[in-house]
C-alpha cells in the first residue's frame, strides 16, 4: 500500500565493513575530542610497544637479569646511561622497560580472570534480585569489599610464596567484587526494562536473557572500568613488589626498584625517582585512556546516526 515511513535517502543495506568503518570513525571522533585521551592512548601504546620489543630496543638487555658490573655501579644519568645505573652497575632505563612487561602481564591476567568472574556473578545476582542467590553472592562480595584492598592482597600474598604468580592471585581475589558490584547495579535496573520483559514473554531462555539481552548493555561501563583499572592493578602490583611480595630479584619490577633505591636516597636519587616516574606515567596513561573510552562509549545527546 504505502512504504510510508521509509525515508527516500536509504536504498540499500550497507555492507558489514562499511558499517564497521562508519562506527569506528564515529567512535574515534568522540574519543579524540578530548586531546588528553589521545595523549593517554599515545602513552599506553608507547609503553606496550616498549614492553613487547624490550629485548630489541633497550640499550643493555642483558641488564634485566643476573648481571653485575661494579665498574659502572651507581653512575648518575648520562648519555650512556640515560637514567643512570644502580649499585650493581645495571642500566636503570633497560630495567624499567623490562619491568613494564611484568606490570602489563599482571594487569592483563588479573583483569582477564577477575572481570569475567565478577561480571558473571553480578549478572546472576542482579537478575535474580531478592532471591537467596542474590543474598549469598552480594554478601560475599560485601565481605571482600569491606577489607581494604591493599591489606587483603598483602595478607594473601604473605601467606603464599612470594612471586609474580601469587601476587597476581592475590590481586585477582580482591578485584572481582568491584565488577560484581558494578554489574549488579546495572543488571537490577536493566531487568525491569521492557525489552527484557518482552524476551521473557516470548519465552527466551535464561541464558539468552542474561548474556544476550542484559550483558551487552553493561559493556561500556565495564570496558571503561577495565581501562582505568589497568593502572590501579599496576599500582597495587608495584606496592606488593615494594614490600617484597611480588616479582623476586633479579627480575626487575618497578615497586622493587623503588624500594631498593630508597636505601640510597638522596645520593643515588635516580634509582628511586625514575622507576617512580615510570609508575606514575603508566597510571596516568591508563587513566587518560580510560576517560577517553568512557567518552567514546557514552551515548551522546545529539548522537545522530
Amino acid at each position: 500500500m504505502n512504504a510510508n515511513l521509509q525515508p527516500a535517502s536509504d536504498i540499500n543495506i550497507p555492507s558489514f565493513t562499511a558499517r564497521f568503518k562508519e562506527g569506528f570513525r564515529k567512535k574515534w571522533y568522540k574519543f579524540s575530542r578530548n586531546k588528553l585521551s589521545v595523549a593517554g592512548l599515545v602513552i599506553v601504546l608507547a609503553i606496550v610497544m616498549a614492553a613487547v620489543l624490550a629485548p630489541y630496543i633497550t640499550p643493555y638487555p642483558e641488564h634485566a637479569g643476573k648481571f653485575v658490573d661494579y665498574g659502572n655501579a651507581s653512575l648518575a644519568p648520562s648519555a650512556t646511561h640515560l637514567f643512570g645505573t644502580d649499585i650493581f652497575g645495571r642500566d636503570i632505563l633497560s630495567r624499567i622497560i623490562f619491568a613494564f612487561r611484568g606490570a602489563l602481564l599482571m594487569a592483563v591476567l588479573v583483569l582477564a580472570i577477575a572481570v569475567p568472574v565478577g561480571v558473571f556473578l553480578g549478572l546472576l545476582a542482579g537478575y535474580y534480585k531478592g532471591s537467596l542467590l542474590d543474598t549469598i553472592i552480594m554478601r560475599v562480595t560485601d565481605i571482600f569489599l569491606s577489607v581494604p584492598p591493599l591489606l587483603l592482597a598483602l595478607a594473601i600474598a604473605a601467606v603464599l610464596e612470594p612471586n609474580l604468580t601469587n601476587a597476581m592471585i592475590a590481586i585477582t581475589v580482591m578485584w572481582w567484587p568491584w565488577y560484581t558490584r558494578l554489574v549488579y547495579g546495572m543488571a537490577t535496573s536493566l531487568r525491569n526494562e521492557y525489552f527484557v520483559t518482552a524476551a521473557e514473554l516470548i519465552g527466551a531462555s535464561k541464558f539468552h536473557i542474561l548474556f544476550r539481552e542484559i550483558l551487552p548493555n553493561c559493556l561500556s561501563p565495564i570496558f571503561t572500568k577495565m581501562a582505568l583499572d589497568v593502572g590501579w592493578v599496576i599500582l597495587i602490583g608495584a606496592a606488593l613488589s615494594f614490600v617484597g611480595l611480588g616479582e623476586q630479584p633479579p627480575t626487575p619490577a618497578l615497586g622493587q626498584m623503588v624500594s631498593d633505591g630508597t636505601r640510597y636516597m638522596p645520593d643515588l636519587w635516580w634509582m628511586t625517582v625514575f622507576p617512580s616516574l615510570a609508575i606514575a606515567v603508566m597510571i596516568l596513561g591508563f587513566n587518560l585512556l580510560g576517560d577517553g573510552v568512557r567518552d567514546m562509549l557514552a551515548k551522546g545527546e545529539h548522537d545522530h546516526e
Binding site: 564515529k26 571522533y29 568522540k30 551522546g300 545529539h302 548522537d303 545522530h304
Partner: peptide
C-alpha cells in the same frame, strides 16, 4: 544550529 558529529544540525 546545533553542532554534532557530521556537522551542523
Amino acid at each position: 544550529w546545533y553542532r554534532t558529529y557530521g556537522g551542523y544540525s
